[in-house]
């Protein structure tokens, strides 16, 4: 089980680095798709099955397609200026390392202390659905409003004006 974990983790990290590092936007989009897939696998391993499926459909399916579509639409060429100024990378990298240096040991220490709960939580559709429509009904409705806002906004912004 852990071997699979490390394999998927490796794929995940490589694709993440690929997203950040590749100069061509389309490559980074494709790397992102790879990354999303590996996250979906992770979900499955953590038996959040419903989420794994949703991840694949929503993220990989819908969002990435939209992104690729827009990339193609605007035929973005390679980033013309030198994408990665030396100083900026250095500093950002250093910052990232500092962040990790602070967070990772902290995570280890505090979460190791917390005992793994006995309940073997199963993220099946039924469980999630039951919870979603009873307890989380208010955020669910709010989320619907959120999507509505996104749709209306997107249409308003991107609609081509036909004016005389």
């Amino acid at each position: 089980m852990t071997a699979l974990f490390f394999l998927v983790a490796l794929v995940l990290l490589i694709s993440a680095v690929g997203v950040v590092a590749s100069r061509n936007a389309i490559h980074s989009a494709l790397f992102l798709v790879g990354n999303l897939m590996s996250v979906a696998v992770m979900f499955a391993m953590l038996n959040a099955h419903f989420l794994a499926v949703v991840q694949v459909i929503v993220y990989a399916g819908a969002i990435m397609v939209l992104v690729l579509f827009v990339l193609m639409l605007l035929n973005i060429k390679l980033e013309n200026q030198p994408a990665l100024g030396k100083l900026v990378i250095g500093l950002a990298g250093l910052g990232g390392l500092a962040f990790l240096w602070m967070m990772v040991p902290l995570l280890q220490r505090s979460f190791a202390a917390i005992p793994q709960s006995a309940v073997d939580v199963q993220g099946s559709v039924r469980e999630v659905g039951k919870l979603l429509y009873t307890q989380y009904v208010f955020p669910f409705e709010a989320a619907s409003l959120l999507i509505m806002a996104a749709v209306v906004g997107a249409v308003m912004l991107a609609k081509r004006r036909y004016r005389a």
């Binding site: 900026v88 910052g95 962040f99 602070m102 967070m103 902290l106």
Partner: peptide, 21 residues
């Protein structure tokens, strides 16, 4: 935007540092 993001990141690090250490 890049500069803003960078300043924010530094500020976040500082805050974290202050809090954690």
């Amino acid at each position: 935007v890049r500069h803003y993001a960078f300043f924010m990141f530094v500020a976040a690090l500082l805050m974290l540092f202050l809090f954690v250490f």
